[in-house]
């Protein structure tokens, strides 16, 4: 719901970045598990799946990064200040933006973690 470069935050926007992590996680694990099933030839290479996970990671990190900077920018431009305990619609909006920034940071790290096995392992052993 972008209105002139402004997002109206709510609980759904708050959980968008961890949802991206979840989708990235499921697709990474699912694709590799599918590629290796039924796991009889353990030296089978998984090059294609690794490229897929790599591409997926770039997309996921890009999306999370975009949401991170957008929330951070809106929070800063509008004078966001912790601890967000005042009673107004603006402060509630700032609170949601700031929490979105934190969750985006965590999701970014978590996506990187998820990508590491695909970066390091070459077959189905």
């Amino acid at each position: 719901m972008a209105i002139r470069n402004k997002t109206r935050d709510n609980l759904w926007t708050l959980i968008t970045t961890p949802t991206i992590w979840a989708v990235h996680f499921v697709l990474s694990y699912g694709s590799v598990a599918y590629g290796c099933a039924p796991n009889e030839n353990i030296f089978q290479g998984i090059g294609g799946y690794r490229i897929f996970v790599g591409g997926l990671t770039v997309v996921a990190l890009g999306a999370i990064g975009f949401l991170f900077f957008r929330a951070l920018g809106e929070w800063r431009r509008n004078g966001g200040r912790i601890p967000h305990e005042e009673d107004s619609v603006e402060v509630r909006e700032r609170f949601l933006e700031f929490s979105t920034v934190l969750l985006a940071g965590l999701s970014f790290i978590a996506v990187l973690y998820t990508a590491l096995p695909a970066a390091m392992m070459v077959d189905c052993r």
């Binding site: 996680f25 694990y29 590799v32 973690y113 590491l116 096995p117 695909a118 189905c124």
Partner: peptide, 19 residues
Amino acid sequence: GLPAISLGFFSAASEAVAI
């Protein structure tokens, strides 16, 4: 006996949840 790469994803997430 799952492939090591499958384990790797879950090991990574298990470490990440510590944050």
